[in-house]
Amino acid sequence: MAQHKINYTQDGGLPVALTSIDKIVNWGRSNSLWALTYGLACCGIEMMASGASRFDFDRYGTIFRASPRQADVMIVAGTLTKKHAEFIKRLYDQMTEPRWVISMGSCANTGGMFNTYATVQGVDRIIPVDLYLPGCAPRPETLQYGVMLLQKKIRANKAGNAQKPKRLM
């Protein structure tokens, strides 16, 4: 059997860190934000690009999941149309608490350039949104910065069960 010799008085000392429950829970939550692949339109391509080789989303702990039941954050990337609106509500309801929503791009924020009969004028008419990313389409850097801001927001919250579920109405 191998003998590991650890000098607890050197190299940063004991491998023990003291922290509070809130901090450690939020640390875990914020650094493993699994995102729902919700590429609706053009922004979905930039979302894919941010997950691909150059931008590499995995280093934030953000891994795209295909199922809402495994996802923490829904990145609404693209135009939400009135025909699709009911499905975004269904998928949002299927996600487990705590859950966050990033509205990516002008179309998801306000309807953007598609000021027409078929477009929902802002995804926040259907589900509550935590973060709005401007741009048409936002660059992958914007999305990654947005995720970092969301992590900051998560860290600022209490981690307990007493969190009020977000409801639009």
Partner: peptide, 30 residues
């Protein structure tokens, strides 16, 4: 289909020709 129907043809009828150019970007966005 139709889950991404954004009414581009209708938009074209309400836009001047140059104004419609950015909308064509969002058709085949690849």
């Amino acid at each position: 289909i139709g889950y991404l129907h954004r009414g581009m043809e209708k938009m074209a009828e309400n836009m001047i020709y140059n104004e419609f150019m950015p909308t064509t970007d969002r058709m085949d966005y690849i």
